[in-house]
Design a protein around this nucleic acid. Structure first.
Lengths: 236, 236
DNA sequence: TAGGCATCTTAATGCTGCCTTAATTTCTTT
DNA sequence: AAAGAAATTAAGGCAGCATTAAGATGCCTA
């Protein structure tokens, strides 16, 4: 996950400043809202990762804000409130809040609770999203997550540079990639002119990937320009 | 979801009775454990939907129970504790707890927090954290709950780091794990560049796990990248 | 408190395999 | 047919790896 975006809903300026500076120094991005209406607007327009909501807002009941947001979003909502009675907590939690902190709260605890929420988001992401991140092209299969390459069921053993090269080509199927584009992506932007090495790696990659010398179905060479991976049929 | 199964870990009898009767009248099914060891055993054998954990256990630190369970499961853990200091909360939450209630707590609040957890479980789809606590791969068997490793019936004695290393690899079977990924997971993100140590531990782990030098069927090395555990056949 | 055991760390050695360069062959274009 | 571009092959150097051993640290026991 990138830097998580947190919507902070708080009208009390000192508390708000404390929260925002703390969160910023811990690598979060911040959105601000000082009342319920603004909170709903921000939440709907910017899709924050987590919402930090003070229940004591000037314009409307915080619980109403929760209910409103819950009509379209399951974003985690952590409530901060001055009221510590059970009835308040229960109402907020049952209305859709995920956690409830009572003022005065410790900044460290808030950070810990945020980490818990993030951890859970990460879990949901990997399981719900089921990011297979597998590339298939004819008999060729690349599992980016596992770092493995298969050709017709058999696993190919590629050296690091060969693997990078193949990834680069596969992620731009159909596009012609220039020599310098490839070398810069593999080596960094310093070398530039070492097309000779590139040719050697291309040869060894093709040796493992293609059927015979001269019969290239996956990687095509464009003279004077560079290379390109082709989409191939489903044959094996 | 059917009636949720809740593992209650509490050694204080009156509190335990209060909780169990309350939960039962609210439609939950209950598992009980009065100490850490029993808790781990129950958690690993019955796959509860939620765990209610009192940190003050007679036999071991509650945080250790959390860490142990987290080695194989993502089941929601709600902590109940008499200690209300920030440091305790943070330690528990960062160790893998999902929520933290301080005694004396209101039964109503506990029920509300349980409802929040259930709501979230329903969101995540069924059985989010359900993993077996025993990993098998060929002749290799790892019992995460017990912390034991077997190779063809024989128990292996692994040092803590060797064990962590093996767990990390086994939980990502088939994936290539980079050096830095491994070192960060084992030592934390501070060291980073100590690949030398990693190699030594890998050697000693292989010495215990693999047949002979050079004949590696479980752990494969990817030069310039890292290591990976392979799925092996059932033969031995 | 001191000694011993187990584990961790660091350093050193030999070795495998990857990268690079260069030279030769094949292909393409004019 | 000749020249340039690309493919291929081979060989030397070197980075990364496995393995061993010795020193450092911490923990348990007597």
């Amino acid at each position: 996950m990138n830097k998580p975006l947190i919507l902070t809903v708080e009208d009390d300026v000192p508390v708000r400043n404390l929260i925002t500076t703390t969160l910023k120094t811990h690598g979060y991005r911040i959105l601000l809202a000082a009342n319920g209406e603004a909170a709903i607007l921000e939440a709907s327009s910017h899709n924050p990762d987590i919402i930090l909501l003070d229940l004591g807002l000037p314009d409307m009941d915080g619980v109403e804000v929760i209910k409103k947001i819950r009509t379209w979003s399951n974003v985690p909502i952590i409530v901060i409130s001055a009221r510590s009675e059970d009835a308040d907590k229960i109402e907020a939690l049952d209305s859709g809040a995920d956690d409830y902190l009572t003022k005065p709260f410790s900044v460290e605890e808030l950070l810990a609770r945020l980490r818990v929420t993030q951890r859970r988001l990460a879990l949901m992401g990997t399981e719900a999203g089921q990011q297979t991140s597998v590339f298939t092209n004819g008999a060729l299969k690349i599992d980016y997550a596992a770092g493995c390459v298969y050709l017709g069921g058999e696993e190919l053993h590629l050296t690091p540079i060969e693997y990078k090269l193949l990834c680069l080509l596969s992620q731009n199927v159909g596009k012609v990639l220039t020599h310098t584009f490839i070398t810069r992506n593999i080596w960094g932007s310093s070398w530039d002119n070492d097309i000779a090495s590139l040719r050697v790696f291309m040869a060894s990659l093709r040796k493992k990937l293609e059927k015979g010398p001269g019969k290239y179905q996956y990687i095509q060479t464009h003279i004077g320009i560079g290379y390109r991976m082709l989409r191939v049929g489903n044959d094996d």
